[in-house]
Amino acid sequence: MTVAGELAQFLIRTRYEEIPPKAIDYAAMLISSTVASAAMGSTLASLRIVRDMLVMRGGTEEASPWFGGLPKLPVASAARINALMSDAAASDDSDLRNITHPGTTLAVAAMAVAEKTGASGKDVLAAIALGYEAAGRINTGVIPGLIWEKGFHGCMVAIFGGAVAAGLLLKLNSKQMTNAVGLAATSNAGLLAAANTSMAREHHAGLAAMLGVEAAQLAGFGYTVEESVLEHPRGYFFAYGQDAHASGRGPKSPEAWATTGRS
């Protein structure tokens, strides 16, 4: 069985009642902190630019962009707006183990999908808790190469949380969830060099949320991917993790990245 397949089985079979209460409480806190951070970010220029573009583009009315009384948009578009809004304020959840902000992607993806599907509060909290677990497990395969040694942004990890949360609320089966995880692995990018000095930091969060939701949606429609994409010799763990450095490519430490990873 592939890594994505084994992870998918765990995610699909785990029930709300089996999740530790502290994890459920943390999931609830993530919703609150994400909405609070989004309120702060709702007036920033980076949010207005992307929001205006997506509102102009329009689409099926499925989920609500937060704040401003805007019309509903397709789930992935609403998730993108809300993630960017929350991350723009830079006061959202941080997981220092993963060096990323998984809470934003998880909360916006889960809430957007739940608005469309009518999922229960318990389903939303379970999806967030399990998405957090999935992102953390996958991230252990790429630290420290993912960020410090190669200069990639933490959205490369956060996308998995969004895909899993969306997939659980869309009621994907094990095979579909496997493909959602695999599609997430090959769907996202982001560079620290851009994030450190520009609007691109929150742009990454928006992409992670949008593409995570779309990975789950596509998998639900029957889209497939190489199921060993995580552990494949040219897959996610190799491309973004430490294995590629065995050949001597790239800087080897945060200090080295600081001097060689920026122009």
Rank of each mutant, 00 (worst) to 15 (best):
T34Y: 12
A8G: 10
R201L: 02
G69Q: 07
T14S: 09
A194K: 15
H204Y: 09
G136Q: 14
V213I: 15
S33L: 10
Y236R: 03
P144Y: 00
K22W: 09
E115K: 01
S198E: 07
S247Y: 10
L30E: 06
A126V: 02
E61S: 05
D95A: 08
P71T: 05
N139L: 04
K72S: 01
A258N: 03
M85P: 03
G58H: 04
V50T: 07
T140Q: 13
P251Y: 12
L44C: 02
A185G: 15
A88Y: 03
G141A: 11
A76T: 03
Y223E: 10
T140D: 07
T14V: 11
G235Q: 09
A165L: 12
A163I: 04
K122P: 03
G167H: 09
A216V: 10
K116Y: 08
A165F: 10
A88R: 00
L30P: 04
Y236L: 04
A194L: 15
A23P: 00
T178N: 11
T140H: 05
A39H: 06
E202W: 04
F237C: 01
V75I: 15
A89G: 04
L30Q: 13
H153R: 02
D92T: 13
A114W: 02
A244P: 00
M56E: 13
Y26R: 09
I24L: 15
L183N: 10
K116Q: 12
A158D: 15
V3P: 00
H203G: 11
S46E: 11
T224I: 13
P254G: 01
A79N: 04
G220A: 12
V225T: 15
G141W: 03
A38C: 09
G131E: 12
K175M: 10
P20G: 05
E18P: 01
T14L: 13
L125T: 02
I31D: 08
V213G: 07
G58R: 06
P74C: 06
K175T: 14
A129I: 01
T140K: 12
K116E: 11
A184W: 15
L192D: 04
A209H: 09
S253T: 09
A246V: 00
A23Q: 06
G58A: 05
P65E: 06
L96A: 12
T260C: 00
G206V: 09
T259N: 10
S32H: 07
K175D: 15
A23R: 08
I128C: 07
G182H: 08
P74L: 07
S86Q: 13
I147K: 11
L106G: 02
V108H: 05
K171D: 13
L70S: 01
R137G: 06
V157T: 15
E149S: 00
Y26W: 06
N98L: 11
S46N: 08
A195I: 08
A112E: 02
G206M: 10
K116L: 07
K171N: 15
I159K: 06
A205V: 04
L106P: 11
S253Y: 01
I19S: 05
T100P: 00
A90S: 04
L230G: 05
G131S: 13
V55Y: 01
A112S: 15
K175I: 07
Y26F: 12
T105F: 07
I31P: 11
G212Y: 10
R57N: 06
